[in-house]
């Protein structure tokens, strides 16, 4: 089982790492989707079927399309999709920002006291998840739904309410 976990981790990290280094942004996005699929595989490995399939459905199906549309529809300064190499200042700041986030995450993980798992992991059938979501946590689900709806409406208003589009050349 640990070998499978290692393979999944390698898939996630490798695809994410390659996605960062690629110059072609569309390929990066596709590798990002591969990373999401890897995370779904991890959930599946951990026995969380529902979350895994939701991950594929939401991230692999919907969010990836949103990202791709955004990448392709945003105007490019240059004609091609390949970006020129960034100046060194940007590389340094990117490393600093990424390092800070990674450090914070690693610190959080390292400092969290992880209790050893007591016995086998509890099996959570979908029915229980549904009951939990719609009874105990119904209020938070509704709040999340409302926030997403408002965000969607805001997006529609922003996209549609621009008036006549100005032609500003590249």
């Amino acid at each position: 089982m640990n070998a499978v976990l290692a393979a999944i981790a390698l898939l996630i990290l490798a695809s994410a790492g390659i996605a960062l280094t690629l110059r072609n942004i569309v390929r990066s996005v596709i590798l990002l989707v591969v990373t999401w699929f890897g995370i779904a595989a991890f959930y599946l490995w951990a026995g969380a079927e529902f979350v895994a399939f939701a991950q594929v459905l939401v991230y692999g199906g919907a969010v990836s399309m949103v990202v791709l549309f955004a990448v392709l529809l945003v105007r490019h300064g240059k004609a091609g999709v390949a970006e020129t190499p960034a100046p060194s200042g940007r590389i340094v700041s990117a490393l600093l920002a990424g390092g800070a986030i990674a450090g914070a995450l690693a610190g959080a993980v390292a400092l969290t006291p992880l209790a050893p798992a007591a016995g086998p992991a509890p099996f959570a059938p979908v029915r229980h998840i549904g009951v939990l979501l719609l009874n105990t946590h119904a209020a938070s689900l509704l709040a999340a739904g409302a926030i997403l709806t408002v965000a969607l409406l805001g997006g529609v208003v922003l996209a549609a309410g621009g008036g006549p589009e100005k032609e500003d050349g590249p």
Binding site: I30, E49, F50, V56, G60, G61, M65, V126
Partner: peptide, 12 residues
């Protein structure tokens, strides 16, 4: 859910 997740992946 698995079925529709597999279907949604084909968009990619």
């Amino acid at each position: 859910l698995y079925f529709f997740a597999a279907g949604a992946s084909s968009e990619l």
